[in-house]
């Protein structure tokens, strides 16, 4: 860079022209943004890493089971049947609990109605 008298004056003039910052917390706000960005990137990386590990382990297991002549479709059908049975049982239990709860609610309502009627009759006497 040349350094004539004109250059020196131009540099001096332009140095005076540097605008002043408005926000005194600029660095803090910016670094918070950078840290948030870094965390976001770490999370995305972790998700990618764990997904890769999960898929790889699954693939290895499938290959091993295939080598051991274990048919995954048979197991899954059996497992599905067991799950279906458990599900049915749970549904029946749930239905029973629901009916029982409604009946209990009805009984409580009837009892409270009768008792309040008796109380008002005895007061009128």
């Amino acid at each position: 860079m040349e350094n004539t008298k004109e250059d020196q004056l131009a540099r001096e003039v332009l140095n005076e022209s540097i605008p002043e910052w408005i926000n005194p917390d600029f660095n803090k706000i910016l670094m918070d943004k950078i840290r948030a960005e870094s965390r976001k990137r770490d999370i995305i990386r972790s998700i990618g890493l764990y997904s890769t590990i999960f898929v790889t382990i699954d693939a290895i297991l499938l290959v091993l089971l295939n080598l051991m002549h274990v048919r995954i479709t048979d197991i899954s059908t059996k497992f599905q049947a067991v799950l279906g049975g458990v599900g049915e049982l749970l549904a029946n239990t749930g239905q029973f609990i629901l009916i029982y709860f409604i009946a209990l609610l009805a009984v409580i309502l009837v009892i409270s109605k009768i008792s309040s009627t008796n109380y008002s009759l005895s007061r009128n006497k």
């Binding site: 910052w21 408005i22 600029f26 910016l30 943004k33 950078i34 960005e37």
Partner: peptide, 14 residues
């Protein structure tokens, strides 16, 4: 504009 310049600098760093 100082406001716009600050915003631009922040976005540029990110």
């Amino acid at each position: 504009s100082r406001e716009d310049a600050e915003e631009i600098v922040q976005d540029s760093f990110v």
